[in-house]
Amino acid sequence: MSNVLVYAEHAHGSVPKAVSVALAAGKKLAGLSGGQTILAVVGSGIDEVAKAAAGLGADKVVTIDNAAAEHALADISVEALKAAAAATDAKTIVFAATSKGKDIAPRLAAALDASIASDITGINDDGTLQRPMWAGNVFATVELSAETKVVSVRTTAFDPAEGGGEAPVEALSVELAAPANAAKFVSLEETKSDRPVLTEAERIVSGGRGLKSAEQFAEILNPLCDALGAALGASRAVVDAGFVPNDLQIGQTGKVVAPTLYFAIGISGAIQHLAGMKDSKVICAINKDEEAPIFSVSDFGLVADLFQAVPELTEKIKAAA
């Protein structure tokens, strides 16, 4: 019997949905090992976050409140989580496969000489795990052989854990000091948007090279996003071309999303893009090239000039609402 520790990353005093997804996976793993599921909140001035974490559905929340951990940089976070795992008798540590999770999890695995599986999409009853490889062309069943295990969980792969109740919160007293050669935080330039967060959105409008320019990308897609209350996403090609910020990229090396409704506009559908969106519930594609691979994963495809079809679609969605 061993416990499962789930890293509760946070920003602006709240915990993202990705943590509830990691918690759901953590609970499944704890069910197999017969242990408890414990959320770990690390940071500086985290009372509010701890309170939010207590309602997410874990058995317990532990906190490490320390000024040195303010920016959740990997080196100090590893020290904190090592201490939290020891204090809670956790042999499995779970992360959401977000940029923070991917930064910290492998480092923690090395620190603990643990086995690691990144970006897992499934947990089998025998304890083996599923994870995608080769841009999602292959799903491997893997076994982690070390006693201590670290996993990161694909944020679309599990339904978020059901919240409710109020788990007890225990503040761990841990001495944490950044080593002399620790990384130092300089600045964070956040992408400002009134739209839903891409990885949490129920609807996504995503654009590709077919939009031709940054101006047209905005002019054509923003009204459709507004009409649908959707998040905006993009293919790698248009991010590389500078049409939109980097953090809107969907695909193998960008974000993985699975909204209820995904519009692929002017996106041909390279395998690397499909890897990031093909688990969406309903996929709609608009592209003038009828041979575009995106149509092979679309529920509804429209072969049309997007510059005419999308404004028409936007008007008709508005009228239907």
Binding site: S115, M133, A140, E143, S145, F295, F300
Partner: peptide, 21 residues
Amino acid sequence: TPKIVIKSMAPPPAREAGRIV
């Protein structure tokens, strides 16, 4: 000695293509 062992590999679940409207 590997700490992660691949037991098997399988193609991803196929997504059925829908239709062209």
